[in-house]
Structures are given as structure tokens and as C-alpha cells.
Design a protein around this nucleic acid. Sequence first.
DNA 1: ACAATTTTTTAGCTTTGTCTAAATTTATTT
DNA 2: AAATAAATTTAGACAAAGCTAAAAAATTGT
Lengths: 227, 227
Amino acid sequence: MLLYYFEMTLSEEDYIKAIYHLSQIDSKSVATNAIAEQMKTKPSSVTDMVKKLSEKSLVKYKKYQGVSLSEKGRLVALSIIRKHRLWEVFLVDKLNFSWDEVHEVAEQLEHIKSDALIDKLDAHLGFPKVDPHGDPIPNKEGFFTKSVKKLISELPVLSEGVCVGVNDSSVTFLKFLDKNNIALGDTFKILDREEFDGSVTILTRVGAIRISEQIASNLFLEIVDEE
Amino acid sequence: MLLYYFEMTLSEEDYIKAIYHLSQIDSKSVATNAIAEQMKTKPSSVTDMVKKLSEKSLVKYKKYQGVSLSEKGRLVALSIIRKHRLWEVFLVDKLNFSWDEVHEVAEQLEHIKSDALIDKLDAHLGFPKVDPHGDPIPNKEGFFTKSVKKLISELPVLSEGVCVGVNDSSVTFLKFLDKNNIALGDTFKILDREEFDGSVTILTRVGAIRISEQIASNLFLEIVDEE
DNA sequence: ACAATTTTTTAGCTTTGTCTAAATTTATTT
DNA sequence: AAATAAATTTAGACAAAGCTAAAAAATTGT
């Protein structure tokens, strides 16, 4: 990816990433307050940093008008996200972390600066396309397939995919999954959906089971999607 | 290892490591100027930092008298060195970096904070005892076998070990090694040494070869040493 | 439309880690 | 043992990234 030839501080990288994520949600320009909340800092600090990023042409910024990433800034964000997600794959696939333990460590690892490292890590992991949560991994040039992660409740009958995450990570819900032999990494096929109550029949390792609409709207599948 | 319950900045960690390495060379207390040179900073900056480290009881410091690590500081240093060397093993064994490319990246990775990460990395790598340069890796408690890395010229006849490094990394020397089928990772046995000129006969993969004293004093072996 | 509220920015201060220049202590040398 | 040199510390400044409090702009409600 972009090989940005200018130095970026840890803090600058974090802001760029925050702005990227917020503009994914809201598409238009991002508010100072929103960034402050995301970064757990004060709006006045955000203003300062945003000015700095603007001078480096990483963001487009006009006073009182919010902020959005420039193309350069977008590529920086994607390079950080690429690193974050590759490290998450490493932590889960190679070091046997569970998918919900990896975020914090990946937040640190994503700032390591070495293009050779990321290239070799990518190869070592077999050029994965998604991270352990089913989120797509941008390639070196910043391209990635749009989110292929959907809730079971949003998918048509006969869809097939790998279970990559939950919305609700309460103990009771996780226990339910365990009891029904549903685990991250399993492949499911949606066999049928009842109009009546939205309940869904899915094919799992251990056969077909029926799950309620409530369960279906808490389980993410990464769709097996030819490119 | 020590799980130090206080926050340490990146800079503090670098100073602790520098002081550790300098006191290995000189054993007694370390001079402000020496630290400044190692850290590529100014003596006055060192004085400031050393005061800070002293307040955290990581070093013993008296004005104008140099500085040495406290036991607490020594354990911090060893924990950083442990991380550095484990990452180096990872980079070489898993990502196929060559042994002389890894230092810079490991300098970054050594600052990642997560005990679970290091434990799992250690296990993933098969609990290695030495890094790719033959330097010993401290265990969690900060214990490690004393340096097992010696120059061929310093070893007695019949010693056996794995070639782990060179002193002189000039192109001509590396080419010589290549031509004689000597590579990092190879096991050698010292068969004979000539009193006359210090030349040494060693057993390699491809048979016995004679190397000059000059070559012998540029090749490090990690001794195969039962514990 | 204009007053009240919310959002954003400015101004000035703090901490961390650095620097330069000057002062002080220690070491060396005759 | 005094003089010179070298090493070390102090004092004062600076840039980064944050904060608080106050001012300014934008938005909202009636």
C-alpha cells in the first residue's frame, strides 16, 4: 500500500483511523464532538489535531464545518486497518487467541512500521481476505471487497457462510451457542425461514436446527462469495 | 516475568535497556555520556531521564557518580530483552527474514504490552532458548543461561555448535562463506587447530574444510550445551 | 426572527522528552 | 597542589498532545 513517506505519530494514526470509522457510519463529514467521544478526549484537543492533519493534507477541514479524509488520508487509514486485521488473524490463527481477545493487542501492533513485515505476515497467513470478525482486509493498494459480513436475519434462504461474530456477547447468549454446538468458524447454510415469527432453520455440523429471530439477528455470517 | 504494575513510556524502556547493555560491557556504574551516545541524545537529556527513573526506583543514581540498574530495573530490562529476542526468532523462523534484517523491527515489537501475547508467542515458537544471533532469551522470571555464543577462534578443539553470526558482515566475507557452503544455522565441529598460524579445520555439511585464523575470529558458534 | 442551546474554536497552561548554553564537579596532568 | 580538561548538572526554551475556561459560530425552538 501507499508507503507514506512522511512520519506519522501514533496519535495522528489513531485520529485518522477514528475519522475513517466515523465517516463509514455517517458518510458525510465528521463532527469534532464525535471524534472527541471516539478518541476519549476533549473537543478542543480534536480541533488542534485536525488542524495539524489538515496541514499535512490528510484531512479536509473548514472551521465549524466538520472534517473528512482526503484521498491520502483514506489510504493511510486503510493501511492501518490492513495491519490491524492481519495482526488479528495472526493472533487467532497462529497464537490461539480467541476472536474476542485480540482487539487491544492489535491496536498496538497496527502501529509497527515496516512494509516488509506486513508483506511477509500476509504471506505467512496465506493472504487472508477477512479478519476473525469477518471484516475484510484491504490489500496493499487499499482495495477490499465490501463488507461480506451479515446477520443471519438479513440473509436470504439458501445463503451459506462462516459464522464470524456475535452482536450480543452476554454470557447467556454465548452459553446458548455452546449448548447448540454453534462456534465461531463453523459453516452454516440457511435452509428455511418462517414468515410467521422470523425463526430460521440452519444446517450446522450436527444437523439442522431452528433458531429464533432474536438469535438470528445476533449472529454474523461471512458470506462465501466468489469474487 | 515481573509484570511491572507501573506504566512505562517507550522512552523509559529504551533508557533501561541501554543502561542494561552498557553495564554488561563495563559491569560497574554507567556514565551519563555513554548513555547519551548509545541513545543518540545529549548528556543533559540523560540526566533528566535518569532522575525520573531514579524516582521510580528503576535505577540507583547519585549526582556525578553514574547510574546502575536496581533489581527492579534489571527485571524490566530483561523483560524487554526477552520480548525483543522472541520477536527476532519469530521474524526469522516464521516470516523468513534473514537474521541480519530483524533488529529494527524487533526494536518496535519489543514495546508491545501484553503478557498473554508473549506467553503465546513463546509457546508458538517452541520455547526457544536463543535468538537468531545466538543470544540467550531470558525466561519469564528473568533467568537465562549465560552467553553460549563464542568465536570459533576462542573455542577448544572438538567443540560443536551452530553457526549463529558473523562479526564482519562485509560483502566479501559473506561471499566467502557462500562459496564454502557455510550458512547461518549450520552445525560445525572443530576438528583441529594449527598452533603455527591459528587456522582451524572444521567439519561442515560438505565435509572438513580449513579456515584461516582471520575467518575463525569472525564466525560465532552457539555451543550445543546440555543444561 | 431571535433567544436559547449546542457545537466548535481560541487562549493559555501542563507534561514529556528533548535541546542549548552556562555553571559546577570530577579527573588529569604537570 | 594548582591548573587545565573533561564530564555532568542546572536553567531556561521548545514542540507535541493534552486540558480548562471563555468566546464565537451554528443550530434549534417557539
